[in-house]
């Protein structure tokens, strides 16, 4: 019997894993944003001494892992699994970042929801006593993402006002069976929700229904009320997607607006930095969590956080073929102390 399940899509962890360390490295644009003091490192050149954007993205992830290990004092050998993913074809940024680590690797892909997808799976592994230490990490890079999903960088085109800006950065956490928190207590795994949005330049609107669906499911499954969290944080819906999510939640009888924020809306000063609707990409939620959220949890400014990374599961082919964009959102509940 699966006795840890509560409700339809939620797991209540019996042995909540502790987030032993978190780390983030970001690019120059993110380093000029309002969260700059929370990142472990800000690189000053997007290539970071590498020969291609793809290599630079791998280096971001590799260096972030080094930071996770050195911060936690855990050695390479004591890490049982790395769960990682990114936006590039065949999640190649991750595989090339990890090829010299010598750690068991499981690749995950959930588009920009990868951060909470990997944290969910990592929590299961630790809770089930299959692992003591698990690294969950993702990355994205503006230039490699533009190249793969949009246009060459030097093409003179305009972005529509609903477009979002892919975050250059990598963020991760090290989950452990040991440690004194913050703890991951609940995992609500989202289902694919597609409300028919076809515009690949309006990801926020495509993903917002998935975020709202997972949020409502989480509250129903657990019986927890929104006001027991002091921050409900979605991944990369941006300013428009955030407004829509607020609205969708109100429709279903949950007013979360006073404690709700979105990583995509937080990472840039949207007006000053010409980021249109805000940030996106796997690295968006990963760096905001690995930087801002984790540090505020340690300081005690945040105690209970519901973190929901959101993904738009499209490919260049699917959008050229006129398919709508399936959205997904996975939630993890994080508490500073176990009550």
């Amino acid at each position: 019997m699966a006795n840890k399940r509560i409700g339809k899509q939620t797991v209540q962890l019996e042995n909540p894993p502790s987030i032993l360390s978190a780390a983030s490295i970001v690019g120059p644009k993110e380093g000029e944003g309002p969260l700059r003091m929370y990142f472990d490192m800000i690189i000053d050149d997007e290539l970071w001494g590498e020969k291609s954007w793809e290599k630079a993205e791998s280096k971001l992830m590799r260096e972030t892992i080094d930071k996770l290990l050195s911060k936690s004092g855990i050695s390479n050998q004591s890490v049982n699994y790395i769960l990682a993913g990114d936006l590039l074809n065949q999640i190649s940024a991750s595989t090339f970042a990890l090829r010299d680590t010598g750690i068991s690797f499981l690749g995950v892909y959930g588009a920009c929801s990868t951060m909470t997808e990997s944290m969910s799976l990592g929590s299961f592994l630790v809770d089930g006593k299959f692992a003591d230490n698990v690294i969950c990490i993702t990355s994205s890079h503006f230039c490699s993402a533009e190249k793969q999903f949009r246009y060459p960088l030097e093409l003179g085109s305009q972005r529509p006002p609903t477009a979002q800006w892919t975050v250059t950065g990598s963020g991760g956490v090290l989950l452990s069976s040991q440690g004194s928190g913050p703890y991951i207590t609940h995992v609500t795994t989202g289902k694919i929700v597609d409300m028919g949005i076809k515009d690949a330049n309006n990801m926020g609107a495509a993903m917002a229904p998935a975020a709202a669906d997972t949020l409502v499911t989480h509250f129903k499954d657990t019986g927890i009320y929104p006001d027991s969290y002091d921050l409900i944080l979605t991944g990369d819906l941006g300013t428009l997607g955030m407004e829509i999510t607020n609205e969708l939640m109100k429709q279903q009888g949950y007013d979360i607006s006073d404690r709700y924020n979105d990583c995509g809306a937080m990472i840039y000063d949207v007006k000053r930095q010409d980021a249109h609707c805000g940030g996106s990409g796997c690295g968006c939620s990963a760096t905001v969590f690995g930087g801002f959220v984790y540090q505020e949890l340690l300081k005690g400014n945040l105690n209970n956080v519901l973190f929901i990374a959101t993904g738009a599961l499209l490919s260049p082919s699917s959008s050229q073929q006129g398919e709508s964009i399936p959205g997904i959102a996975h939630a993890v509940a994080i508490h500073r102390n176990l009550s």
Partner: peptide, 10 residues
């Protein structure tokens, strides 16, 4: 929803 998003989008 499509209509709502259309109206809401900048």
């Amino acid at each position: 929803y499509l209509k709502y998003v259309e109206e809401k989008s900048p």
